[in-house]
Simulated scan of single mutants.
Amino acid sequence: MTENRSYLQKYAMHFGTYMGVYWILKFILFPLGLSIPFLLFLFVGLTLGVPFMGYYYVRTYRDKVCGGSIKFLQAWIFTVFMYMFAALLTAVAHFIYFRFIDHGFIIQTYMAMLETMDKNNVPGMGGYMEQLRDLMDTISSLTPIDITMQLMSQNVFYGSLLAIPTALFVMRKPKSPEMQPL
C-alpha cells in the first residue's frame, strides 16, 4: 500500500508539472488577449482543454502504473493531487507576473472596458455598473500574494470538482482471471 501511495504522489507530481507548465503558457495568453482578441479566444479554448488533458494523464497513470485498473477513490485522489501540484507551480508564475510585470494592467484594462460600456449605455448594465466598479476597486486593492493565493485556491477547488467526473470516466475494475485469454 505504501508503494502505491508513493507511486501515486510521484506520478501526480510528474503529470502535475506538465499541466502546470501548460497552465503557465496558457496564462501568458490572458493579459496579451486583453489587447489581441484572438489570443483571448485561444486562452479560452486552451482552458476548455484542461479537463481532457487531466483525463489523458489519469488514464495514462491507470494503464501504465496501475496495470489497467483503478478504483474511483484512487483516481480521484490522483487527479486532485495532480491539479494541486499544477496549481502550486502556476502560483509561482502568477506571483511573478502580478508582482513584477502587471503593474495594474489587467485592472486598468477592465476599468477602461467599464468606462466604454458606461459611455455607450449598454442595455441592461445600468444597475450593475456601480457594483462592477466597486468590485474592480476591491480587486485593485489586493496585493500580488493575495491575488496569487486566490487564483491558486480557485485552481485547486475547480480541479477537485473536475476530479469527480474524471475519476468516474477513468475507473476500471481489474479483469478477472477467467476472462483473460490463454
Rank of each mutant, 00 (worst) to 15 (best):
F85Q: 00
L39W: 11
A93V: 00
S6Q: 15
Y158G: 01
K71Q: 14
M1E: 09
M111I: 09
L168I: 11
Y83F: 11
V92W: 03
M179Q: 12
Q150M: 15
P181L: 01
G127N: 08
T2M: 09
Y7A: 03
R59E: 07
S140L: 07
L168T: 08
S153G: 06
T47L: 07
I28L: 13
L135K: 13
Q154R: 12
F100C: 08
L32R: 10
E130T: 14
F81V: 00
P181Y: 03
P123I: 00
L25I: 05
L34R: 10
C66Q: 09
A91E: 04
Y110G: 01
L25E: 02
Y83H: 10
N155M: 11
K71H: 14
L46D: 06
M117Q: 15
D146Y: 04
F85Y: 11
V156P: 02
Q150A: 15
L42C: 07
R133W: 00
Y22T: 10
T79C: 02
E178Y: 02
M149S: 09
H94T: 01
I145A: 07
F27N: 15
Y7S: 06
F38R: 08
M113D: 12
I139S: 11
Y56S: 09
L132Q: 15
T109Q: 15
F157N: 02
F169C: 08
A163Y: 01
N120C: 05
T143C: 04
L168A: 10
V58I: 13
L29Y: 07
I164Q: 02
T2R: 08
I106S: 13
M53E: 00
L142Y: 10
Y61I: 07
F72V: 03
S140W: 05
Q131E: 14
Q74P: 00
K10T: 10
L182W: 01
M84D: 08
L25M: 06
Y11N: 11
T2L: 10
A87D: 03
K119T: 04
M125P: 09
A163T: 02
M111S: 13
F41E: 15
M117D: 12
E115A: 15
T60M: 08
P181Q: 03
M129A: 11
D118R: 15
E130V: 09
F38T: 10
G104L: 07
I107A: 12
K175D: 00
G67W: 05
N121W: 09
R62Y: 03
A112W: 06
M117I: 09
D63Y: 03
V65F: 04
V92F: 07
L8F: 01
L48T: 03
Q74K: 10
S6V: 12
N121K: 15
M1A: 07
I145N: 02
Q74F: 04
D102W: 08
L39H: 10
S153D: 10
A91M: 06
M113R: 13
G45L: 13
L40G: 12
M19T: 12
P123L: 00
Y57H: 15
G67Q: 04
D118L: 12
Y128I: 01
L46S: 06
L39C: 09
I77L: 05
L161I: 13
T47Y: 12
T116A: 15
N120Y: 11
F30T: 02
T79F: 00
F15M: 04
T109F: 15
E178A: 02
